[in-house]
Design a binder for these strands. Structure first.
Length: 431
DNA sequence: TCTGGGGTCCTAGGACCC
DNA sequence: TCTGGGGTCCTAGGACCC
């Protein structure tokens, strides 16, 4: 059996933990750059606000309905997430942190005398998380990950379930599949839902009636076959945990939309350098070095101008690296290649790919060994200083921003709550 | 004026090699 | 009209997820 624990409206729930005044009123949280709605309270959903609604379009509506609006505050959400996951790690033999607000538990081998009734176990988990963190959750328990996802949706949708849905019998599995629209199945997105509806397949139950060769043909090859089998209760996806429960990434990206569009090379270079530094930090944190680096620049993606709105270039490194100064130098080379004078740029990003374990690189025949070691030490010290004194305390010249000033590329975040739990300067004040 | 960001997996097709 | 057969590596693109 697998369980999926999913936090309800996670970002909104995090904001509510620290503000009693947000209870029972409509609340939404915006994406980066205050772009779209990405988390909505039940009250905001009831008013008709949709996931992904552009903020500028629904702003009058939000104001009219007195909806409380927040910019996203990842320092807060990340910290609350760690608390939830830390608890979950203590109750199941294996967990896989699937996203910031979802976690799979592998219940195989769980002590059957301690938890003879998994539905009661689910209820206990919910209650404990609520007590410890004030975050509301729902729990789905079923024989496969895909069915656990489905069970979780049902636990959310039907209040009578009291937040827990346990598909322990064939009868319940069948019922759950009949209650689920095909587009709500994990792995069926917009395109597949259209295709399926055209063939008269409306519910998950109807989907499971199809043959594997049909799934292979219409649902993306082996991916579709696995999906079908999982719905039928045959396990295809095991948990994939890493040591700390988080997945070790195969690629690492840092990209941002600029708060205001940029036209000067020096401004964009500053942004790309800063993004490179942040991505390199992520690289070192997971103990990786990158073999390739891509830099991309984007113009207005909603403009009707013909031609591509984005351009990118890939640089293959001579030796895999996680050294910020190396990488910034390459980023500058890449940027020069891409740069078109007179263009108005709205977004830039850096992607590291071809990751390998740092320190295992083939020796560069001409490198002076001492230089490499000194650099490693420098990067370690850099990370320590930034961890202790705050991100950006020590930076490279090309990414430098004066203390107290906001960089020209900085995203918009007009409605941000405090980092109550992670920043000494923003602790919760009781006045 | 304003429309996020960070990932995954899979397939197909081309280049190249023996 | 005929014009090998594998294998690998790389890239681009499509679909999905939260």
């Amino acid at each position: 059996m697998f369980a999926l624990v999913d936090c309800n409206n996670f970002y909104v729930s995090c904001e509510r933990v620290f503000r009693a005044s947000l209870a029972n009123v409509p609340v939404v949280v915006l994406s980066n750059n205050d772009g779209c709605l990405i988390s909505r309270s039940a009250e905001a959903k009831a008013l008709g606000f949709q996931m992904g609604d552009p903020y500028f379009q629904v702003k009058p509506d939000l104001e009219y309905n007195k909806v409380r609006v927040f910019s996203s505050n990842y320092a807060l959400y990340g910290d609350m997430s760690r608390r939830v996951m830390h608890y979950l790690a203590s109750v199941a033999p294996t967990i896989e942190i699937y996203s910031i607000d979802e976690c799979f538990l592998d219940l195989h081998g769980m002590n059957r005398y301690l938890h003879p009734n998994l539905a009661a176990f689910g209820a206990e988990v919910r209650e404990q998380i609520r007590k410890r963190t004030k975050i509301p959750t729902c729990v789905g328990i079923a024989p496969t990950k895909t069915l656990a996802k489905l069970a979780n949706r049902i636990a959310k949708k039907y209040p009578a379930m009291k937040g827990v849905c346990y598909l322990d019998t064939e009868e319940k599995r069948r019922k759950a599949l009949e209650l689920t629209a095909v587009g709500d199945v994990w792995g069926i997105g917009y395109q597949y839902a259209l295709k399926l509806q055209a063939q008269g397949i409306r519910t998950a139950a109807q989907l499971t009636q199809q043959s594997e060769s049909w799934a292979r043909k219409f649902l993306g090859g082996v991916v579709g076959v696995r999906l079908l089998r999982e719905l039928q209760g045959k396990v295809c996806h095991q948990l994939q945990p890493s040591e700390d429960g988080t997945l070790s990434r195969q690629s690492i990206t840092y990209s941002r939309t600029f708060g205001t569009p940029l036209t000067a090379f020096s401004d964009v270079l500053g942004a790309v350098s800063a993004f490179t530094a942040r991505a390199a930090e992520k690289l070192r944190r997971q103990g990786s070095a990158a073999n390739t680096m891509s830099v991309f620049l984007s113009k207005d993606r909603f403009s009707l101008e013909p031609g591509p709105h984005s351009s990118s270039t890939v640089i293959t490194l001579p030796v895999a690296s996680s050294d910020t100064s190396d990488l910034i130098r390459l980023a500058r080379t890449a940027l020069k290649r891409l740069w078109q004078p007179g263009c108005v740029y709205k977004k830039a990003g850096v992607i590291f790919d071809g990751l390998e374990t740092d320190g295992q690189q083939q020796l560069d025949l001409f490198a002076k060994v001492n230089v490499g070691e000194a650099r490693d030490k420098l990067m370690k010290d850099l990370d320590k200083l930034n961890e202790r004194f705050g991100s950006g305390a020590v930076t490279f010249a090309s990414a430098f921003v004066k203390k107290g000033e906001r960089p020209v590329w900085d995203s918009k975040a007009d409605f941000k709550s405090s980092a109550y739990t992670t920043d000494w300067d923003e602790l919760w004040c009781i006045t």
